[in-house]
Amino acid sequence: MQHIWPIGGGKGGSGKSFLVSNLGVWLAMQGKKTLMVDVDLGAANLHTLVNIPYPEKCLSDFINKKVDTLDETIIETSTDNLYLISGANNNLDASNLVYSQKIRVLRAITKLPYEYILLDVGAGTSFNTIDFYMISDYGVFVSTPEPTSIENVYRLIRSVYFRKIRQMLNQQDFKSIIEQAGVLCKESSIDYLSAIPFLIKDREPETGKIIELMLQNIQYRLVLNQHRKRDNPNLGFLMCKMVKKYLGIKMEFVGNIHFDERIHDAVRKKVSFISRYPYTQAASDIRELCNKMLLISSQDSIAGDEHVQVHHL
């Protein structure tokens, strides 16, 4: 069974790449065959975090058709069971990926024989970022407890959700639904985004049902990184509650990762933080939230939901 976790967040520097590399190491240490894919093509870092300064192959080799299959771009890391597709050496402007290229990459990713595939999707809400959330119902969103970061994460969640719905409708229907939603939310306090599924169902019960089912399968996760003592430990929990209440999106808070100066040291020395400093609070936070996510995934696999994601491609 393959699990794809796109990991992103609205802001650079919040710790997405750091989290991906440490989750990767931790999953691999538990004997899970894990692949990290750096799709943050404009700001690829993962290779550096796992101390591979000069990756000899990378994702753009596949995009450029230098190689035929995506698995030819996979490199081994120094950790057993942990593999990487690097985003380095990318001379393409990431946002210039045409639709067919993107689809090719996404499809190829879903076919790779790894138990866990972590996608470092980078910051921003550009078209590309959102695309990588389309192949999984288990998107992970990383924020810090700062309002700037929170603002961007909310924006990203909305965009991802919006896109999920949009890809199910034709352009014309979508446009008129959007207009209708605009009118509705002016009249009442209902959120624009949460009104859309209802409007669709009203208009086209069949499509509405399908979309409803699709949305029900979504199970996002929120991580708050760089948590400091004076931050409210419940912040993430309450954020998820907001997202559920007003947007109707299921999102589970999987934990805070404490701020720790030693993370900077680990990055500087290009060593894995979780292996170098296993007894710190931050390392224990990462292990705990990883286990939590594993638990959610395993429950969902039992329910057999995981494969729904791939049809929409």
């Binding site: 407890p145 929170i150 603002e151 909310y154 306090s189 954020m239």
Partner: peptide, 26 residues
């Protein structure tokens, strides 16, 4: 108390989530 923590003007939880008027109404 919890609700105020969530919806108050300076709250990080609902930051950017609502318009000024929406927040006031809430």
């Amino acid at each position: 108390k919890t609700a105020l923590y969530i919806y108050d003007n300076g709250s990080p939880v609902s930051y950017s989530f609502f318009s000024k008027d929406e927040r006031k109404n809430i």
